[in-house]
Design a protein around this nucleic acid. Structure first.
Lengths: 234, 234
DNA sequence: GGATTTTTAGAGTAATTACTCTAGAGGTCA
DNA sequence: TGACCTCTAGAGTAATTACTCTAAAAATCC
């Protein structure tokens, strides 16, 4: 029997992801959960507190998926990190779309979020440096930093962009997953010019694994169409 | 004497950019403009119509700044396009943060937006192909498509991300401009691995022009701090 | 088993906000 | 001048929604 507090967060996250935080009232959450509004406010003093708690949860999960590297990194480590990014994007897909509003109003939350971005950049940079130390990547310090920023922006923005264009994904998990895989493909292409050695050998296989749709047509949108077909067939 | 309709859009855009669309009511717009709510609703049947009109305006401006290439492209053309992207980001900074909500509710607007993204990708791809034809870029078709998608995502997401972290930018134009320049720097770094010939010769100068802050520290955040200092000094 | 604390229900409210409605001002044209 | 059309004012409203308050049920403790 999980606690009410946890169940509130679970339900809120689900509703936020599906309908967007702005379209989900606290009464909706309570109703979906079968509890009273009063009960909900007993556990969270306001809606912002729910969002903040969800963010905190999200942050912890990311840190689990993306542990700081220990020593040299292998090709398998790199694949594992990519998987971690994929999972992180999946979990946080609502946050990066709706969080800005709360950052605007809640300085404390904003400070935490800023810290989160800083830590994420630092951690990601260490990973890239680990890959460089293993000879899997070749790049100057400056290029590595720029690459890290671009990877971060892409990973954080991709879910929001794709959902804006394709809201059906919110109700269709397999379509949603396909879109995210496409996001990983984009990250792979982002890193591609810097890969060396074993990483370079596996590049084509990696692209093939995450590529969605027919590469001869418009990339982004055939990906969507193909995903829709695939999802409605399955 | 500009028309009331235009003035409503101007004021709405300004308020949306500064405070976020969600925090700006139609009554606020009317009041800031010195007209009555009834008057506002005489010109726009609802808030969505205002947002849609702003989007339409934004789209037209982008197309002006990013005309389709005619024949071979020079190095100067490329710089001009970068400038166009910068201006587009500046103009549309509120849209990509707040538009998703309206896309969710208004299928017609969503269709238009989808079309916009498609056109933008296509147009951008033509530009990249023009650069390739001139020997300024070297990349496979697939790589070029992936690059285009990444450039698009970066250009569209950058303003929202930076404003989420640094809301002071909304009230401080020079800080905001600095953040945008940093975004262009990121795009330059994105394209860097594919540059050839004259483009490659100018790469360092280009990075130097758009780089913000001290490259030996954390890129993203020293950029912010440096901008804050610069803005408060000037 | 009584006292105390934690958790829950559910009716209610104050505030916000997108939007309406009516009436009238101002311009234009015959 | 009068008819007509465009534009504007401004009070008002219906609906939403985050949040409160009181009391009772449930759990915990001694």
């Amino acid at each position: 029997m999980t606690g009410t507090k946890t169940r509130i967060l679970d339900t809120a996250l689900d509703l936020f992801n599906r309908h967007g935080e702005r379209n989900v009232t606290t009464n909706h959450i309570a109703e979906a959960l079968g509890i009273s509004p009063g009960n909900l406010y007993y556990h969270f003093r306001n809606k912002t507190a729910i969002v903040a708690a969800l963010f905190e949860r999200y942050r912890q999960q990311i840190w689990e998926w993306l542990p700081p590297p220990r020593g040299e990194l292998t090709w398998q480590d790199k694949m594992h990190y990519l998987q971690g990014i994929l999972e992180s994007m999946w979990q946080g897909r609502f946050l990066h779309r709706d969080l800005p509003h709360f950052l605007h109003q809640d300085p404390e939350l904003r400070a935490e979020y800023t810290r989160f971005v800083q830590d994420g950049m630092e951690r990601g940079l260490h990973i890239y440096q680990g890959l460089r130390a293993s000879g899997l990547i070749e790049a100057s310090d400056e290029d590595l930093r720029a690459l890290m920023v671009n990877t971060w922006v892409l990973a954080m923005s991709w879910p929001g962009l794709t959902h804006g264009l394709n809201p059906a994904a919110a109700e269709n998990e397999s379509l949603d997953r396909a879109l995210l895989r496409q996001g990983i493909y984009q990250i792979v292409c982002l890193e591609a010019p810097y890969l060396r050695g074993e990483a370079l050998d596996h590049l084509d296989a990696m692209k093939a694994e995450f590529r969605v749709g027919d590469s001869t047509e418009n990339l982004l949108f055939t990906a969507f169409d193909a995903s829709v077909r695939e999802a409605s067939n399955g």
